[in-house]
């Protein structure tokens, strides 16, 4: 039987997940000395680990080439997709927030506001919920620059401690949604390999 394949979001979520594996006393030697390899095995847990960028984790799980995935709620909210979102892993905690220049009233005036963000879908939905038309500018790098350069009235971005905002004279106007790492599962895998996947998820949940 082929091993269960899990896609991890490279970086912090990967480290935290490997931490969970270590708590479960899995053999993580390959994961800790991975070099440039992208598919790694955890032999004693009959597990194969794939390292990928956040949005790709969703793609791999959606198409069923990976059975499970660990990805941030921010990515899930932005990209959507069809999969089961079974567990809140509790790490990688932060917030989606609407932020802008300190002391300004964001909602002031009638003019349509411009929002800079890396997350156009999340932003669109948030303001649609308020019945508010806005203009979105997609930014790839430091979003905080946009209001400083007067390209936008505000930003929607991930805020952890808020120190970047503070240093640049910005502040949070409003929180949009809390974020943390989630375990996602392919919809067919869960039916075809129920036992293995359930017991794996339970083990992970037991060390959270």
């Amino acid at each position: 039987m082929r091993p269960i394949r899990i896609a991890l979001t490279k970086g912090r979520l990967e480290k935290d997940t490997v931490g969970l594996f270590q708590k479960l006393e899995y053999d993580c030697s390959e994961l800790l000395n991975k070099g440039r390899k992208l598919i790694l095995s955890v032999p004693d847990a009959n597990l194969e680990v794939v390292l990928a960028k956040a949005a790709d984790v969703i793609t791999y799980v959606e198409h069923g080439v990976c059975d499970l995935g660990v990805v941030g709620k921010d990515t899930i909210m932005e990209y959507g997709g069809s999969f089961f979102e079974v567990t809140d892993l509790g790490f990688g905690k932060c917030q989606f927030a609407l932020a802008g220049e300190k002391g300004k009233d964001f909602y002031e005036g009638y003019s349509v506001k411009t929002i800079a963000t890396k997350y156009p879908n999340v932003t669109r939905r948030f303001f649609e919920g308020k019945g508010m038309d806005i203009e979105i500018v997609k930014i790839e790098g430091s979003v905080e620059l946009a209001p400083l350069l007067k390209l936008s009235n505000a930003i929607v971005d991930i805020v952890e401690t808020g120190s970047t905002l503070k240093e640049n004279g910005l502040e949070v106007f409003e929180y949009v949604a809390p974020i943390s790492a989630r375990m996602i599962v392919n919809t067919a895998s869960v039916k075809l390999r129920k036992q293995e996947i359930e017991s794996f998820v339970e083990k992970i949940e037991s060390v959270l």
Binding site: E85, V86, R182
Partner: peptide, 9 residues
């Protein structure tokens, strides 16, 4: 939420 088995939410 039931369809996507999103237990936490």
């Amino acid at each position: 939420l039931i369809e996507v088995k999103n237990y936490p939410a």
